[in-house]
Amino acid sequence: MDLIWEGLRKALELLLTLDPEVLRITLLSLKVSGIATLLSVILGLGLALGVALNEFPGKRLVIALVNTGMGLPPVVVGLFVTVLLWRNGPFGFLGILYTPAAIILAQAVIATPIIAGLGLAALQHLPPALRLQILSLGASRPQMVWLLLKEARLPLLAAVMAGFGGVISEVGASIMVGGNLKGSTRVLTTATVMETSRGNFDVAFALSFILLLLAFAVNALLTHLQQRSGPR
């Protein structure tokens, strides 16, 4: 118990004194996971819309694959992204391994199927005739898509939260493709692992509390957006 209280005290101290290293790590976590989530929203929602609004052979297989992708282990993603970005790998020429860009890429691979899978479920949950109803009110195709997204906004925002929650908390991929390099790719989760392994439990706890606080703040914001929309 003492360790936890000590961690809490340390966290407060690090936060209140605006420790530059902690601030940098926190902001990098937020930036990397934020951009990765944004990319995943674009790719994942695009995929969800494409599957939900079209009939094609193999649709069930695609849905099954997307749903499987929701459970991709971050270390597996980390391994594949590392191999692909390796100096001699097919994308080695990009030279982004062990940079924040690599972490964004790996996290986007993790979050895209989560947002696509939950987004697809949200869209498929809408009444099938709603699309025809919107078209018969004179909507163009983009207008129809917009109204459908608006109608499914609650579960769609939940999908975004799940995607963000998945990447802000993962450590396996970040450490493999980022390398936990001080000042460049060290994020909250990788720093926590490192401090724990060094026996600096107070710092590790402090970083964990900050991580929880961050996750809470972002989700509170999204929840606010979700619950505010629409009349009571």
Binding site: A129, L132, Q133, L135, S136, K150, E151, P231
Partner: peptide, 17 residues
């Protein structure tokens, strides 16, 4: 489609006023 419209069995209203 902008000169016609349709009403279905279910009202299919939007989550709005």
């Amino acid at each position: 489609r902008r000169r016609i419209t349709m009403v279905f069995q279910d009202p299919l209203l939007f989550d709005a006023t």
